[in-house]
Structure formats: C-alpha cells, structure tokens
Design a protein around this nucleic acid. Sequence first.
RNA 1: GAAGGCGUAGCUCAGCUGGUUAGAGUACCUGCUUGACAUGCAGGGGGUCGGUGGUUCAAGUCCACUCGUCUUCACCA
Length: 875
Amino acid sequence: MPKELAKVYKPSEFEKDVYQMWLDRKYFHAEPDSSKKPFTIVIPPPNVTGQLHMGHALDETLQDILIRYKRMQGYNALWIPGTDHAGIATQIKVEQVLREEEGLSRYDLGREKFLERVWDWKTHYGDRIVNQLKKLGSSCDWDRERFTMDEGCSKAVKEVFVNLYNKGLIYRGNRIINWCPKCVTALSDAEVEYSEDEGFFWHIRYPVKDSENEFVEIATTRPETMLGDSAVAVNPNDARYTHLVGKTLILPLVDREIPVVADDYVDMGFGTGCVKITPCHDPNDFEVGKRHNLEEILVLDDNAKVNENGGKYVGLDRYEAREKIVRDLDAGGYLVKVVPHSHNVGKCYRCGTTVEPIASKQWFVKMKPLAKRAIEAVKTKETEFVPDRFQKIYLNWMENVRDWCISRQLWWGHRIPAYYCGDCSHMEISKTDVDTCPKCGSKNITQEEDVLDTWFSSALWPFSTLGWPEKTKELEYFYPTSVLVTGYDIIFFWVARMMFSGLEHTGHAPFKHVLIHGLVRDSQGRKMSKSLGNGIDPLEIIDKYGADALRFTLATGNAPGNDMRFHTERVEASRNFANKVWNAARFILMYAQSEDHADYKVDMSALEDEDKWIIHGCNRLAREVTENLDKFEIGMALQKLYDFIYDSFCDWYIELVKPRLYEGGDTAQKALSVLVTVFSSVLRMLHPFMPFITEEIWQAMPVEGESVMIAPYPAFDSSISFESECEKMNDIMETITAIRNRRAEMNVPMSKKAKLFIDSHSAHGFRDSEKFYEKLAGASEVVFGKCKEDGAVEIITHAANLYIPFAELVNLDEERARLTKELDKAKSELARVKGKLANEGFVSKAPAALIEAERGKLAKYETLVETITKSLENL
RNA sequence: GAAGGCGUAGCUCAGCUGGUUAGAGUACCUGCUUGACAUGCAGGGGGUCGGUGGUUCAAGUCCACUCGUCUUCACCA
C-alpha cells in the first residue's frame, strides 16, 4: 500500500521513520562481495564526547552524497563510522567537571579511578554524536562502528608502535618540545598555533670576565630564560666580535661563567649580533648547545615556574620571574634598553596558553624516511587531492617535516607499550603486557606513564577499522579506501599521518582521493566558535527546516575547498526547493491513480514534442550529473539538478502538459507516463543529496523498486536523441515567453481563460508548431483560432503558468513605439552576428558547431527584422 | 620571509579544459489568493567580472604587473 503524501511538506514528520526504515532493511550494511566493486569511505571520527557542529554536518553530508551515489551505481559501498577518544580535549573536559562538581583534581583520584570516570563519561555521551549523525541521514554501516580506543584499534596501535620501534623509526630522546603548562603535557609542532603578540626586546649586557667595563650586549624577548644561559654566540665572520670568541662572560644575577662561542647560526645583521644561548629553552639554542658541548640547564618546571636551578627566583611563575629579573637587571645596571617588539608566540591549540619550548625526554617518530614515501605516493598520483591545490600544501609540509613528538603526559589515551625494569633498568617494548623482565627476570616492572598523541591512533584509522593487523576479509576487500573527505584544517594533523602510516604498515596509500572542503563560517565570515557564541546548531536547523534542506545548503553555493558562510536564508531557500519537489510529486499523484509502475512505461514511439524535450533534458542531465559527481563537483551537480527540476520540469513541462491531463484519455496517460518516468529519474538523481524527501515521495509513487536508495542511479542513454524536437520546443517556449511579456506590457489582467491576438512576428515560433496549438485546442474550454490574415492567432489555455492574455484593443502609437524598439534591438543583434561571421579569424579557427550556431542566428535575426518591419508597415 | 585563496548584481556566492546576449539564491519594484506549491506564479530594475597591460579570431576564464583582503607555513635571539 503506497503512502499518501501529506498536503504540506513537513520534514520533521517523516525523516525519523524513513531513517528507521533504512536501518530495519539493513541498506547501510556492506559485506565483502567479489561480484561487486567496493567503494569505501572512513569517517573522520568526531570526538566521542563532542556535539555535532556545522563542520561535521558539511563533512558528513559530502560523504553521504558520495556513498549513496556509488551505492546506487551498484558499487559495494561501505561507510565506516566511529569516534575518536580525543586525548587532551576529553581529559580536560572530564577534569573540569570533576573540579566543578566535586572539587577534585585527577591526582586526587589517581590514574585508575580517573580513567574509570573518563570511560563513564564516554559511555554516557558516546552515543550522542552518533545519534546526531543519524539525524543528518548518514548512511554509515553502524554494525561496523569503531572507537579509537576499542580493542581492535588498541591492538593496531601497539602493533604499529612496536614495528616502528624495531625499525628504528620510534626513539626516545631528550629534545626541545612544545610544552603546555596548563595542559601539563608535551605537544607536537602541529598542535601549536602562532599569533602575533606585542612584546619587548630587552637589551642586556653581560660583563666580560677579568675585563673592566667590557660588555657583550644581547637582546631577548624572554629575559627569564637567562637563568638557563650557558653561552653567548656570535657569528664566526663577525669582525666586531672575533676577539671575544673563547673569552668568558659573567652571567648577571646568576654569576655563572659562560663562554663566548662562534656559530654560523647567528645572523650578524639582526639585533646586536650576539645571541644568548639557552639550550634547554629554545630549539635553535639546543642545537648550538649540542655543537659546542654546552651545559644544559633547565630552569622551568612542568607548570612553567622557575625550578631549583633558578636560584633566588625559584618558585616564581615565568612571567613573575620575568618582571623581577628585569627589575634586578635594571638595578644592577645591566639593562641597556627596552624596545617594543611584536613577535609570533606559540599557543596551545586546545587551551590557548603560551607554550614553552622546553628540553624534555619524550618519544618521537623519525619522520624523514616515512615522509619520503608519503611524498612519492602523492607525486605519482597514487593518492590525489581534490582540489589539487591542496597537494602543494601537503607536499610543502611533508618535505619540511620534523620528527613527531608522540608522547603526552596525559592519562586518557593509548599508554605507550614500553616497560622498564626497576632492577636492571632494561627497557622492553612489547605488544603484550610485560610483568617479568626478560633480561634479569625481575618482577619489578613499570609501564611507561605517558600516553600517545591522539593522532597516533587516528593515523591508523583507514586500516585499523578494517581489522588490521589481522588479515581480515574486510581489509582485503575494502582497503585501500576510495576517498577521504575532510577539512583543510587537518591536512597536517591527520591526512598526512594517515598517508605515511598506511604506506608504511600496509604498503598502500590509504585512499585514492582526498576531497578537501573549507570551513563553515558564520554569516559575517567569522569562525564559528563556542567562545564567540556564534555557532549555529545543525540540529536546530534540521528541526526547523529538515535535514534535506540543510544538506542542500551545505552542498551548494561555494566552490570546492573554499570556506562558506552560513546564512539561514539559504536554508530557507533550500527548504522551499524541497517543498517544490514535494508539490510536484503531489501534482503527479493527483492524476497517477494506478499503483502499478508498469502502467507508466513510456512508449517512445508515441510522444509529443514536449515529452521528447523533457526526456532528452533528463537524459542529458544524467550525463552531466554523473560527470560532475565523478569529479567530486558536488555543488555543480546539485545546481544542475535544481535547475532542471525547478525550471525545466516544474515551470515548463508540468505546465505544458496540464491541458492534456485535464482532457484525460490517451494523451493524458501518455503525459503521465512521462511525468512518472522522468520524475522517477529525478528522484533517484536527487536522492544522494536529499535522501529523506526523495524516499518519502518514492514510497508514494508508482515506481519500480522498494526504496529509492537501492534503485539504480540514472545513466546516460546514448540512444535517446531528440535534438530537432528540442529545438522546436525552445522556439515554442521563447514565443510563450514573448506572449507573457506582451501581456505584461499591455497590462492585461490574468484570468482563468484568456485570449490573445499575437502579431505576426511574435507568432513565428507558433507557425512551425501547428501541433502544439492543436493540443492546446484539444483541451476542454479551450478555444483555438487559426492564423488570421493579419497574422494574429487566438489562443486560450488552462495551464496556470502559461496564461496567455486577452487583448483586442491595441494602442497603435504604443504598438508602433514598441515594435520600433524591438526592430532596433533585432537590427543591432543582426549586425553583431554579421560582424562575427565576417571575421576571418573566427570563421577559420572557431569550432564548426559554433560557427553553425552563429549562422542559425543570422538567419533568425534576418527573418525577425523582416517580420517586424512588415508588422510595422501593416499598422 | 614563503606558499595559497578571495575580489563577479545591494548582499551571499556559482561560473569545469577560453566560445551564444555573464548566472543563481536573496533583497528590492510591478502584477497575480489560477484546480501541485504564497515554502507559490509571472515579469522587472541592477554588473565596463578590483585595476593596467599582454596572448588570442575570441578573456570573468590564460600570462605579467598592480591594489585590496583573508589564510596557512616558516621565522632572528
């Protein structure tokens, strides 16, 4: 029993049921099947405790469009959903709640108890985002939902860690890393964001030892780090300072003796040409320190307070220490000047705190060898970026990448599988738990406290979700995946790391294409953010306008890879389009009473011109839409669908066919067969973009197949070619438009029945379309008049939007003025076309079809000028 | 410092490998409560496609320079 369509389009009343039906029928589930080609997408896993925002909505919409399209095309389409444990973000959130509600810190609870709390949190909020994804219509295979910390993913993480370690690609070392004193953890380079801050250059002079009134002047933006200075460096070619190299300086306030060293790193032209070297608090200084064997003095602790190496400044926060040190330097006569200076300061991407470069013992992934293959894979087009400009960004990063700091001083995450023997200090790296030292047999074993960067597990997502390291049939069949859809903001965080991980561990790039989209901004172009409070909740939009309208909005209106501004007005427009589709369906259903789709099979041999025209247009649309989608031009494909449905199908075809439907009988049945058939194609083409409404309508239409989402996607049929009929129809439509314009000009009111005398030049389209008039004339209550001697035609029609006006009295002066204006216009067009055809270059070099078209126009304008001239004379 | 995006109608933006008279949505104006749809219908005004120069028979589209704007990456203490 087919569904009845409600009178008014209210998406909230059926979207949920439609989704449930898909779930019940298991349409989303995919199993390896060698008879079909796979098409695989893995979802960029949202934060498990996160909430759906517009960025997700865009990302999921694009993926769902592709996956539904390919599924309908007969691919074995699999979309793997899942969530990410999001180390820092989640831990911070749970700590915050713990502090607010119970006044406790994670240390109060201890590691084990705290992690229990996080898991509780995860189970409580873990379904929220998944349910939100469902509201969007995402056709993910929920049977295969994964989590970056589930058993399988954890196994993959350990496997990868051990593999890389054994290959020498993971090492533990003391290096300068970015330290966030608020999150109390190390960060990778990618996790630091830079912004310009107003600061100062403090010029300080360091006295030369055993030398009266001899100083070296240095400049620094972070005077507090002088506590950890172990040298001053100058350029070896700097004549100003060569005499100082090898001498000893006295570090003010600290009274430590430090050497002057020569190093190429120093830029002679910058500042004073002398650089204080603080190996433990600056990456460059660290390198200089290594080269010159300098002492490494760490002066800040984990909270960025001065530690025991800071003498009398111990315990002071870094900024308090700065203030006090500057004051003391000034008092001691060491401060030469203070110069305002703006410079880039690194901030933690999670909390915004200024990060501190600190020498610390951390775990690293050696990037150079891994990056090499990741670069090759893109250069050889094993993986392609869409749009391709993002390839450049990727390559640029990959080519300059530094080793990846993967250890985090957090509790929530994959604990590093390194085990230390308390007795023989042996370190064992192992996929399985270690409780006995393999070297000395001691049971005094402790596991590494640190966890891995969240992105370490995300990097494995395309294959860990398919069962790797097991050789599952899913991995065999669905991997490498087809396309990865994500925003340009995580190319470094995620895409790059998946690339080298996939290549290293599976031997394949993890995906064929990377479809990059932009950010969704607010209507003023600002980033949507919690702190600005300018975020628009996709769920509210869905409740009000429907998921289809939101999807339509997100999928159109901006070029691939560009940011888009979100305007609610655009969602309204999208909803109105959905309403249009809905009502077109209701109109067809008013006349299509049979429930048997076989009753609407089109007989190609017995069609009217307008039937052929719409069938031809629909067929061409199928070709263009598939071409666009195959090139990931999603917005373009949808725009074409919109134009066809709104303009060709609703505004023209339905109106043209109304007289036939009113008449009934054979001609009506023929029209209905075309209406149903074309509309069925349209629904299928539109389905990936607007799944809910197309399904709801499908269920009510006499069409073949139990669901639109498993119906075949329309393919181009090269045997359909109605060029001449289309040309004729174009003429007819042009004339009808001209008639409409006449009515408006003459200010003739519309009425149900109307009558018009068309002057001869307006009627030129009609003259070739005798049949069309007969059709109109065949409708009930329609009066049809033949061409009168003066060239006028009298027409009456019922078609609502083809109202043709009644006008018997024409003001001769006005008519003359109008015709003169039209004649001028026609003449100038004629001149333009003539000029073009007289151009030798054009005639010899332009494509033949184009020249042919121009010749056609020439003839057309020549006749037009002729007929208008005649009409004028007849007045 | 390097790379890249953007600049097209009042506003938000499309415009693929150069090719009919540069489009859409929205806003505005005019006229329509017609038997799918006022979440609608018909029509209209509004653009020298940031500027200059070049290539070409042909440039919004390609090239050079330039102005404005935004972003990313790298940064010298």
